[in-house]
Computed example of a mutant assay.
Amino acid sequence: MTRMTILCAAAMAVALPWTAAHAQDGSADADPTAAPLECGRTYTTQPGDYLASIAERAYGHASGYHILYQYNPGTLGSPSRLEAGIDLWVPCLGGEGVPEANLPPLAEATSDDIRIVTGADYAPYVDAGLPNGGFSFELVERALQTGNAADYRIDVIKDWGSHLQTLLADGAYDLAFPWFKPDCSQLDRLGADSLWRCENLRFSEPLHEVVITFYGAAGTETALTTYESLKGRTLCRPEGYFTFDLEGEGLTPPAIVRVAGDSPSDCFERLAAGEVDVVTLNADTAESVVRRLGIGDQVSELIDLATVQTLHVVGMRTDPQTRINLLRINKGLIELRRTGVYQDVAARHL
C-alpha cells in the first residue's frame, strides 16, 4: 500500500430504459417471466435485453442496473440501444466468489516523482476507511504499478474545492482523481467551473462509468419523466457536486430552483419532508442513503431521467508531463481490464 498522507488544505448522458416494458416499440406486454440469470459469469446480451431486465433476472430487482456499468467499463455504450451479442459480466453482489488471493499485492511507493491528490468521504471511490483507500484509489495504484516501479505519492486532502484550480493549477500536484468529465461539445451551455475543466484539463481513460440518478416523492415517477417536466421545480444536489449534466439539459436557475444540500442525506431528508421536489446524485450513494434513512416507501427513482457520467484522473494541459503520466495510467487500466483484475477490484469495493 502506498504512503497515504492526510493533509489539511488551506484554502454521456443518455436516457436509460429500465424494464422490459420500455421496449423500443413501446410495447408493455413483454414477457415478465424471463429465466433467472446466474451471477458470477458472462452473459451474452440478446435482442430485447435492457440493463434493468438483466439486473432483475440476476438479482431479483432492477436497481442493480448501475452495478453492471461499474463492472463493465468501456463495454456499454448507450444503454437505450443495448445491442445483442455484447459479453456482459454479471457479478454476484457482496463480492461473493472473489477470494483475496485473486489480487496481487500492492507495492510500497518508492518515490514521489508523480505527485497525486485525491479527497475523502466519497465512498466507494475514495476514503481512508475503505480497503486500499477505495475503488478509485486502488485502481490508480494498480494502474501505476503495472510493469513499473511505484514512483508516485498520493496525498488525501479533504477540501475537494482546492484540488483543481488551486493545487493542480499552481503545480503543487501533477494529477488529481476522481473527477467527472463534462460534455465539452456543449461549451455554450456549461457553467464557469465546467468550462474551466474543458479548457484546462486532460482526462485519463474512465476509471468508472457512474450512473447519476434522480429521485422524487413517491408517486411522482409517472409525471416526472422528462427534463422539461423538472423545470419550475426545486432540485437538490449536494454542495460541491458537479452540475454540468444539469447545465446541458437547461436545468439551471431560473428554470429550476437549485438547493445545494449539506450532504446526500440532507437532500433526501429534505425530499422526504417535502422541502424539495427532486434529489439528484450518483446511484450508489442514493441507494445506500435511501436504505439507511428507511425512506424507500416515501421516494421513487425517476429512472427515465438517469444518465451515465465518467470519472477520471486529470492533469493540467499546460504541464508537458501530463500526457506522459496519463498515458501510463491508461496503459495500466487497459491491462487491469484485460487480465480481469479490474473486476476483482470492483468486487472488493462495490
Rank of each mutant, 00 (worst) to 15 (best):
V156N: 10
R258T: 14
E199A: 13
L251K: 01
A223K: 12
F177D: 08
L68T: 02
P182W: 05
R292Q: 15
M4H: 11
R337N: 08
S288W: 08
V117K: 07
V313K: 01
S162G: 05
D193C: 07
R197E: 06
L76F: 03
D174H: 06
P79W: 06
L251E: 00
V341S: 10
Y65N: 02
L7R: 15
S265D: 13
K231E: 14
R233V: 07
C92N: 03
L130Q: 04
Q165D: 03
F137K: 02
Q186A: 15
G133R: 11
A15E: 10
V278Q: 06
H66E: 10
P104L: 00
H66V: 01
A123K: 09
W160V: 01
A21W: 09
G97Y: 02
Q165V: 04
L190K: 09
W18G: 09
G296V: 03
E247Q: 13
E199V: 09
D25N: 15
D277A: 08
A128P: 08
L333W: 08
D245I: 14
L235W: 02
D183Y: 10
P131K: 09
H349D: 08
V341L: 15
T285Q: 12
H208I: 06
L175N: 09
G60W: 01
R323I: 13
E221C: 05
C267E: 00
Y65H: 10
G296Q: 06
T42H: 06
A283M: 13
A283Q: 11
E249H: 14
I6T: 10
S162H: 04
S204A: 00
S263D: 07
I154V: 05
Q24Y: 03
D284Q: 13
A52K: 04
V210D: 02
T2F: 13
A286M: 00
L68F: 08
V290L: 09
A13L: 15
I116P: 01
E335I: 06
V314L: 02
R153D: 13
L68W: 11
T225V: 12
N330Y: 04
R237H: 07
A10P: 15
Y71E: 08
T75M: 12
G85Q: 01
C198V: 01
R233L: 15
P91N: 03
R292E: 14
S80I: 01
A52F: 12
R291Q: 14
S194L: 13
L302G: 05
Y122R: 12
G274T: 00
A172G: 10
D170I: 07
S111Y: 12
Y50Q: 11
A347E: 01
L224F: 02
T19D: 07
L302P: 00
A149M: 06
G294S: 03
A20L: 14
R189E: 04
L51P: 01
I154E: 06
I295D: 07
I116G: 05
T307A: 11
M316N: 02
E301T: 07
I67V: 11
D151Y: 07
D113N: 13
A218N: 02
A172V: 14
S136E: 05
L37I: 02
C198N: 01
D159K: 03
E287Y: 07
I6D: 13
V279C: 12
G340W: 12
T307K: 12
S78W: 12
G95L: 06
